[in-house]
Design a protein around this nucleic acid. Sequence first.
DNA 1: CCCCATATTGATAGCGCTGCCAACGAGCCG
DNA 2: CGGCTCGTTGGCAGCGCTATCAATATGGGG
Lengths: 355, 355
Amino acid sequence: MIVLDRKPTITDVAKLAGVSMKTVSRVINKEPNVRDELRDRVLKAADELGYQPNFSARSLAGVRSFQLAYLFGDPGGDYAHGVQIGILDACRDAGYHLVVEQIDVDAPDAAQRTATLVAQLRLDGVVLSPPITDHRGVLDALKRAGVPYVRIAPDEALDGSPYVQMDDAKAAEELTHYLVDLGHRDIGFIKGHPRHAAGRLRFEGFRRAMEARGLAVQPSLVEQGTFSYGSGIDCAWRLLRRRARPTAIFASNDDMAAAVAAVAHESGIEVPEDLTVVGFDDAPIAQVVWPPLTTVCQPIREMARAAADLLIGRAADKDRDSWPDPVPHRLLAHELRVRRSSAPPGERTVARARR
Amino acid sequence: MIVLDRKPTITDVAKLAGVSMKTVSRVINKEPNVRDELRDRVLKAADELGYQPNFSARSLAGVRSFQLAYLFGDPGGDYAHGVQIGILDACRDAGYHLVVEQIDVDAPDAAQRTATLVAQLRLDGVVLSPPITDHRGVLDALKRAGVPYVRIAPDEALDGSPYVQMDDAKAAEELTHYLVDLGHRDIGFIKGHPRHAAGRLRFEGFRRAMEARGLAVQPSLVEQGTFSYGSGIDCAWRLLRRRARPTAIFASNDDMAAAVAAVAHESGIEVPEDLTVVGFDDAPIAQVVWPPLTTVCQPIREMARAAADLLIGRAADKDRDSWPDPVPHRLLAHELRVRRSSAPPGERTVARARR
DNA sequence: CCCCATATTGATAGCGCTGCCAACGAGCCG
DNA sequence: CGGCTCGTTGGCAGCGCTATCAATATGGGG
């Protein structure tokens, strides 16, 4: 181990290894056409000096920056945090760094903020998650700047950019079939935020499954939520104080399902004895409320990882200035998680619902 | 608005404004000693071109990078997310960017990962939150690299670096006094992770308050948790199946308090009628369990903001290569949040506890 | 045995910006 | 009025790296 009075540069490594700077650069960047002997010498020299490339210089001089950015909207979310962890997994493996930025979807300057970000930082790619994944202005700013981006769980998939998603509709179908198989007929549904694709798709899956079983979706049992716990509380009250109360409630996410459980509890309705409650996402809250929620596990972390990997892979593929055709996308598998918030409807509750 | 066929550079702005690059640089960086007239001309030119400085070039050429990093350990946490939002608030205002990195405290390469990070990226500062805020190896790596850092809620405050915290002990004292004032005498306590300062301080505050009121801390009513929901479950079981059950339980954070509420519920013990449960932090979970938890609001976001502001302020203060004396630190105010999980002990429960 | 395609290596010119220092004028003191 | 400081502006080197292209070596076909 050799210690310099300053951070070692590529020049130091080159001198020590007795090769040119360019050869060192080739080795560091794993470029081909370097003899094994030289490669070893360079690697050894770099190791002895504890050399680490300077990312600012790299991105200034070259076409790659080894930097991704993650734009998220929701300042509160487990969701955003999960996505971030997934991206970081990918970055760690690829030697990338991650810059994060929080952008309020409803702020008028969302697009401007995005434009500024990509103008100041050379980025190899940007990952977007809902709700900004569907923000026109943000997408346009990215497109104009020529920065590749991948959308997670996008609304209109067809903006020509790659995306990563799970099959929300199919998962909702499966969950609904599960409820019907338990014996539920009068199933309440709490929709998600109208602007989120996931919300629409989950309802669509529910609708399809009900239809497939010859059951009607009763409009009076469908409430419009926004994915927030608070909206779940409101919807739950409306649903539970009907005289013909449903025997099961399908909430479009776990936050709202947790809210339903809370309202039920407060109303003296036992879950799952008097009411089955199911959620969606398998968020942390699902295992922390009483009873733990039956839900669908959304592979957030894996989706985010896949998104970042697409970006990193593309950046590695030099001299490409557009995505391959067809545009890459990934569909990740979900999984039904049956916990204690679901059970067959009791006699009592069926009678009440039928009344 | 003038459009070039490439991103405008400082040279473009200089030409348009009819001044030297250096003057543009001065204006962009808000340096003094530029005549107002020139400043206006430069600003106007920059605006017309839509000029944005290139951060890579800035950090390569200069001594500032306008970049902070946030190192966090816990991959699951609301806490880490809250801190991040606070840092982003500060960054947004100061025109900084934030790089994030997740480092497992227990991984043997934590220090190495930190060293690599700071060797690759020129950083104006690093924010640390528990538990890595107390990781010796990480702190040493930062010190060796000469990168300023601020610790949030540090354990041993005296490593000579600035820190931001709340008064955990005092808050715990207040919460305990509140419980005693309600009439509770037999109060169970669930400690936090032994390696976290916050855990120790909260217990210390509890102990002091009990002593001040002439009450004994019963060792049999003190359990060691780890801040996790799961550990809360275990501790709650142990506490609640004693024949002399406490009338109140003080959990060192909200996750564990939520666990206590869940166990109580499962055991047929009503909260708060049969058992008062209080937590700490005012995490999202506190308002999402039933009943909502009485807790102490920890100003995470503000603490993080303050930490980032210290770093940014120091970076702005050119040619300083160490912190001013005395080393800056901030103590932020907490607040008691009384919700529905706490009530005076009922006759029945007092009788049982006394038995 | 020569020529050209291919593999391997090096020299050099910047990338866009800031640090340093020189240049210049104005104001001030003695 | 000389010599000084201070405020203001510009010139230029160079941060650490990669892209480009030239230079050289290697090998096969004609």
